[in-house]
Structure formats: C-alpha cells, structure tokens
Amino acid sequence: MQRESVKGRGAQSAEVSTRFGLSEREADGDWRDWVETLDGTPPPLRTHVTEERPRTILSFNQSPDIGFDRSINAYRGCEHGCVYCFARPTHAYHDLSPGLDFESQLFVKPNAAELLRETLAKPKYRPKPIAMGTNTDPYQPIERRYRITRSVLEVCLDARHPVTITTKSDRVVDDIDLLAEMAKQRLVAVAISVTSLDPKLSGKLEPRAAAPAKRLIALGKLAEAGIPTHCSVAPVIPAITDEFMEEIVQRAAALGVDSCGWIPLRLPHEVSPLFREWLEVHFPDRAGKVMSIVQSIRSGKDNDPNFFSRLRPTGVWADLFRSRFRVACKRAGLGKAKFELDCTKFRPPEVGGQMRLL
C-alpha cells in the first residue's frame, strides 16, 4: 500500500544517520509516536528555532572543484524542505535527523554580522568573494524575522567586500536596495535556483520554497536593477524535472539574466534513502526509472562523492542533458557565468562603533 505524504514537508521521515555512532531512530519516530490529535492523526510538524552564538562565522574550504574558498551560513537547517538538499547530512553531526529534523529544527546565528565585522577587521585578512547559500538558504522563511543575511550584506557593503548569493527564494528582492548599491561597485552576483515550472511538483519537491513563478519574477527584478544575475536549473532530476530545462532557460533569458547553468542531482549519504522514500510516496510508478538513470550518470551508484565528477556526471544520459542545455542556451543567447567581482576596493571595517557614513 502506498504511503501517505507528510504534508508541507519534503522529507517523509525522521531518517537519522549512524555514520557518527549516533543512536538510530525509527523512521517515523520522535514525538509523533505518542502525540496524536483527537481524530487519531499526527499533529502538524512545527518548526522550532534555536539561537546559537558561534565564535566564528566564516568557513573556509580547499575543494578544487568549486569556485570559492570561503562561505557564510547564518542558518543551520532549512525550512524550505527540499528533499534533494545535499546539506541535509550536516544535521547528523548534531544527533539530529537529516530528514524531518533538518527542515523543522533550525538554528540561527544572530551575531553573524558582528563576527564577520571582527574577522574582516583583522590585519592579516585578505579578501576573496564570500559565498552565501552554499549550505542552507540565506533567504529561507525565518530570514524575514531575523534579517541576518541583510545585516551581513550591510557589513560587506561597508567593507566593500564581494559576495555571491545562491537562493531559491524571492525574498532576496527585499534587499534589492543593498544589492543594487553593491552591484554598482562590482561587489555582488546573485543566483536563483529554478527546479521546475510546475507549482504542484515544486510543492512536493521543495514544499516551503517560493513558487517557480515568484522566483522568475525575482530574477527579472534583480536583472532590471542592474544586479549580475544567474539562473541555476538545479538540480536536474531525471524523468522528474528535466522536461523543464529548455523552457526555464528561455524564460530566464527573456527576463534579462546574464547567464544560466545546470547542476545534476546529487544524493550524498542520508539524502539517497530520503530521496528514494520520497519517490515511493510521490512517484512510485517511475521510481525505478529515475534511480536507474541517476545510477547511470554516477558510475552505477546512487552518488559519486569524488571531486570534479560529482558536479560533472558521465554516461549517455549525462551527455544528453549536457547537449540539451547547451542548445537551449545557444538559442536563448546565453553564455556561462562570468562574474568578475572586485576585491581591490576592500577596506577593513571599523569595530565597536557604527558603520561608516561615507
């Protein structure tokens, strides 16, 4: 019998990892085992937010296949609930489920801007673009309440420090005043991810993210404001979302975006069983086909963790997607992203006082 979906959530269970010696939970465990409403059904899964105050805010990496060496993640966990999110396994480090916990047990860092200001003011600091949105979305719903991303951008504008932003939320236009000012000084580039053009499908894949139409509107507003804008068709899920590839490129080009790119589906660690479970709930008729294609582009496995090949799959299907995307961009007159951000304007921020007025 087909399982019923967990409404409003991407993950369909509280799947937890045992990679770190953590105790295993039942797939439908936690409080839902014993708390029920009067009619016998589980109550809606609520979002809990915990404030934390880390000692550092910049994360550095040495990965050879990505174009940045530092990033900021003002939030841990993401309420968007995208079932395919490759960041889900990070919750397992804290004895939390990469499934439902990842999208309902959130952590915020209210002192992110303060920490960033202190870091940028250090005499030995040397600027390179800071990536935001590399792990969890900087414009997920709780940003409207906490405004941490905006406060970080204010510090970067004050210090003339370049930033790249990746999001799947139209909330990014709330900061269009800051972004436009940064764009004038070549300090920012924004990428918005558009996975499909079907709102019902998106509601299953990424239940609390902005609808596709809203993301496209946001792309248009950013481009109109003179902000370097990139449309990311990501992730491309075989036999689920790849049918929208060409039309997304066409619509993005019509909106004036500077470039488009695509990223194939990745299923690291616990994401693989969560995604397989999601397929069985929402697309049981094609679950086998989807995973067969996924494995064909990942050397026969659900996931390829190796540098370079993890972002550049191989095989007939991968070549087909790559060719389709290349033709779509050529027809739309779009090329690859070439955002040259300026690090030469950097000036260490003042600490212990207000930002500069001039």
Rank of each mutant, 00 (worst) to 15 (best):
K289T: 14
H282N: 14
Y125Q: 09
A27Y: 07
P235D: 00
E270S: 15
M245P: 11
G29F: 02
E36I: 12
F275E: 04
T18H: 04
T149W: 00
D175C: 07
D242T: 09
A121F: 10
Y139M: 02
L178S: 00
D137L: 07
L157M: 08
Y84Q: 00
R266D: 01
Y125C: 08
R19M: 11
K168C: 09
W262S: 08
G10P: 07
S196H: 10
P141Y: 04
P162V: 00
G203H: 06
D158W: 03
C85H: 00
S309A: 11
F244Q: 06
M291G: 06
I57P: 01
S13D: 06
R150P: 08
D302K: 07
S97K: 13
A11N: 01
P228I: 02
T166I: 14
Y93K: 07
G261C: 07
R88A: 07
G29V: 00
K330F: 11
E143G: 04
T50K: 12
G10S: 04
F102P: 08
K221T: 12
R286K: 15
F244Y: 15
A27R: 12
L179V: 00
I176G: 02
R266N: 00
P207L: 01
G29Q: 06
L45K: 15
I240G: 04
H80I: 13
R186P: 05
A332T: 12
L179W: 02
E24N: 08
G315Q: 00
P199V: 03
S232N: 12
R76M: 05
K301P: 08
K122P: 05
I293M: 05
E247Y: 06
P141H: 04
G40A: 12
S97Q: 13
V35N: 04
T56D: 11
P207G: 00
L120M: 05
R88F: 06
I237L: 10
S259K: 04
F244A: 15
E154N: 07
V327K: 14
L106K: 03
L357D: 11
P268I: 07
